Measured scan of single mutants.
Amino acid sequence: MQIFVKTATGKTITLEVEPSDTIENVKAKIQDKEGIPPDQQRLAFAGKQLEDGRTLSDYNIQKESTLHLALR
């Protein structure tokens, strides 16, 4: 499925993911596309910060959802 990640600079990244993917996997995909190390990424959805060990389906993130990326 496709999801979107909006960066602090307003850029939107499109990612191909599975509901079973962990947040860690998603951060690795962002690193592949943007070169941002996962340990510098903070992802949020619906106002909640997402934890590495959880999956997209844990957070009820569905196709075409938009996550927000902040850098630490």
Results as ranks from 00 to 15, higher is better:
Lys6Tyr: 11
Val26Asn: 00
Leu15Trp: 01
Glu16Val: 08
Leu50Asp: 00
Ile13His: 04
Asn25Trp: 10
Gly35Leu: 05
Asp52Thr: 09
Thr14Asp: 12
Asp32Pro: 03
Gln49Leu: 08
Arg72Ala: 11
Thr9Cys: 06
Leu71Thr: 10
Asn60Arg: 10
Lys48Trp: 14
Ala46Lys: 08
Leu43Glu: 00
Arg72Gly: 15
Gly10Lys: 06
Gln2Arg: 08
Arg42Gly: 05
Asp39Thr: 07
Gln41Asp: 01
Lys27Cys: 02
Tyr59Cys: 03
Gln40Thr: 13
Val5Asn: 00
Glu51Cys: 05
Asn25Tyr: 10
Leu56Val: 06
Ala46His: 15
Asp21His: 15
Ala44Leu: 14
Gly35Asp: 06
Val5Ser: 01
Ile3Glu: 00
Gly35Lys: 08
Leu15Arg: 00
Asp52Glu: 13
Phe45Arg: 03
Ala8Leu: 12
Glu64Cys: 05
Ser65Asn: 09
Thr22Val: 13
Val5Tyr: 03
Pro19Leu: 10
Asp52Tyr: 05
Pro38Leu: 15
Asn60Phe: 15
Lys27Tyr: 03
Phe4Arg: 06
Ala44Phe: 13
Glu64Ile: 03
Gly47Asn: 07
Gln40Gly: 05
Lys29Asn: 14
Gly35Met: 05
Leu71Ser: 07
Thr12Ser: 09
Gln41Gly: 03
Gly10Ser: 07
Thr66Lys: 05
Leu71Trp: 12
Thr12Met: 08
Val17Glu: 01
Leu67Tyr: 01
Lys27Gly: 01
Thr14Ala: 11
Lys48Met: 10
Gln41Ser: 03
Asn25Lys: 07
Gln41Ala: 04
Arg72Leu: 09
Lys11Thr: 11
Lys11Ile: 14
Ser65Trp: 04
Ile23Trp: 02
Pro38Ser: 12
Pro19Asn: 06
Lys6Met: 15
Glu18Asp: 13
Val5Leu: 05
Gly47Phe: 05
Asn25Leu: 09
Arg42Gln: 07
Tyr59Arg: 01
Ile61Ala: 02
Lys48Glu: 10
Thr66Ala: 04
Lys11Glu: 06
Lys29Cys: 03
Thr14Ser: 10
Ser20Gly: 11
Arg54His: 10
His68Lys: 05
Pro37Val: 07
Val17Asp: 00
Gly47Tyr: 05
Glu34Asp: 06
Ile23Tyr: 02
Ser65Thr: 08
Lys48Gln: 06
Lys6Val: 10
Thr9Trp: 12
Thr22Trp: 12
Glu18Gly: 07
Lys48Thr: 13
Lys63Ile: 07
Ser65Ile: 04
Pro19Val: 14
Ala28Lys: 13
His68Trp: 09
Arg42Asp: 10
Ile13Val: 08
Ile23Ala: 03
Ile23Thr: 10
Ile23Met: 04
Ser57Asn: 07
Pro19Thr: 13
Ser65Val: 07
Asp39Arg: 13
Asn60Val: 05
Phe45Trp: 07
Gln62Ala: 08
Val17Gln: 02
Lys29Gly: 05
Ile61Phe: 02
Asn25Ala: 11
Asn60Ala: 13
Ser20Val: 12
Ser57Met: 07
Leu56Phe: 03
Val26Glu: 00
Ser57Tyr: 12
Ala70Gly: 10
Gln31Trp: 15
Lys48Pro: 02
Asp32Asn: 08
Phe4Cys: 03
Gln41Pro: 01
Arg42Val: 12
Glu24Phe: 15
Gln62Ile: 07
Gly10Glu: 09
Gln62Tyr: 13
Gly10Pro: 06
Ala70Met: 07
Ser20Ala: 11
Gly10Asn: 07
Ile23Lys: 01
Leu71Phe: 09
Leu50Lys: 00
Arg54Val: 13
Thr22Tyr: 10
Val17Ile: 04
Ala46Trp: 11
Ile36Cys: 04
Thr7Trp: 14
Asp58His: 14
Val26Gln: 00
Ser20Gln: 14
Leu69His: 02
Gln49Cys: 07
Gln49Glu: 11
Ile30Arg: 00
His68Asp: 10
Glu16Leu: 15
Pro19Phe: 08
Gln31His: 09
Gln41Thr: 04
Asp58Ser: 11
Gly10Arg: 05
His68Val: 11
Asp21Gln: 06
Lys29Gln: 09
Gln2Val: 14
Phe45Glu: 02
Ala46Glu: 15
Asp58Phe: 15
Pro37Phe: 12
Gly47Glu: 07
Gln40Lys: 09
Gln31Ile: 02
Lys63Cys: 04
Phe4Val: 05
Gln41Leu: 04
Thr55Pro: 06
Ala70Asp: 06
Ala44Gly: 09
Gly53Ser: 15
Ile61Gly: 00
Gly35Gln: 08
Thr22Gln: 06
Glu18Gln: 09
Arg54Met: 07
His68Arg: 06
Lys63Val: 08
Gln62Met: 12
Ala44Arg: 07
Ala28Gln: 07
Met1Ala: 03
Leu43Gln: 00
Gln40Val: 14
Gln2Asn: 07
Thr66His: 12
Ile13Glu: 01
Pro37Arg: 06
Leu69Cys: 03
Thr55Met: 10
Lys29Met: 09
Ile13Pro: 00
Glu51Leu: 14
Gln41Val: 06
Ile61Thr: 02
Arg42Ser: 12
Ile61Arg: 00
Leu50Ser: 01
Lys6Glu: 09
Lys29Glu: 04
Arg72Lys: 12
Thr22His: 07
Ala28Phe: 13
Val17Arg: 00
Glu16Tyr: 13
Met1Gln: 03
Tyr59Pro: 00
Lys48His: 09
Ala46Val: 06
Glu24Lys: 09
Arg42Tyr: 11
Thr14Phe: 07
Thr14Gln: 08
Gly10Trp: 05
Leu43Ile: 07
Leu50Pro: 01
Thr12Val: 10
Asp58Gln: 10
Thr9Phe: 10
Lys11Met: 14
Gln62Cys: 04
Thr9Tyr: 10
Ala8His: 14
Gly47Cys: 04
Ile3Ala: 01
Asp52His: 07
Gln41Glu: 01
Thr66Val: 07
Ser65Pro: 02
Ile13Asp: 01
Glu16Gln: 07
Ser65Asp: 11
Pro37His: 10
Leu56Lys: 00
Thr7Val: 14
Ile13Cys: 03
Leu15Ile: 08
Arg72Glu: 14
Val26Met: 04
Thr12His: 07
Gln2Leu: 15
Gln41Tyr: 15
Lys27Pro: 00
His68Pro: 01
Gly10Gln: 06
Ile13Ser: 02
Gly10His: 10
Ala46Pro: 02
Glu16Ala: 08
Gly35Trp: 04
Glu51Arg: 06
Ala70Val: 11
Gln62His: 13
Asp32Phe: 15
Ser20Lys: 06
Gln41Met: 10
Arg42Pro: 02
Leu67Lys: 01
Lys11His: 15
Pro37Gln: 13
Glu24Ser: 08
Glu24Ala: 08
Lys6Ser: 07
Asp52Pro: 07
Ile3Met: 04
Asn60Tyr: 06
Pro19Ala: 12
Phe45Pro: 00
Lys63Leu: 10
Tyr59Thr: 02
Pro37Tyr: 05
Ile3Thr: 01
Gly10Ile: 04
Ile61Val: 07
Gln41Lys: 01
Glu16Ser: 09
Leu69Pro: 01
Leu56His: 00
Ile13Leu: 14
Gln40Leu: 10
Lys33Trp: 08
Ile30Gln: 00
Gly35Asn: 07
Arg54Tyr: 13
Thr7Gln: 06
Gln49Asp: 12
Lys11Tyr: 14
Pro37Lys: 09
Leu43Lys: 00
Ile36Glu: 02
Leu43Ala: 01
Gly53Met: 09
Ile13Asn: 02
Leu71Gly: 07
Asn25Pro: 01
Asp39Phe: 15
Glu18Ala: 08
Val26Lys: 00
Glu18Met: 09
Gly10Thr: 05
Ile13Gln: 02
Thr55Leu: 11
Thr55Tyr: 08
Ala70Asn: 07
Asp58Arg: 03
Glu34Ile: 12
Gln41Asn: 02
Ile61Asp: 00
Gln2Glu: 12
Asp39Trp: 15
Gln31Lys: 06
Pro38Thr: 11
Gln49Tyr: 06
Gln41Trp: 03
Lys48Leu: 14
Ser65Arg: 03
Asp21Ile: 06
Asp58Trp: 13
Lys11Asp: 15
Ala44His: 09
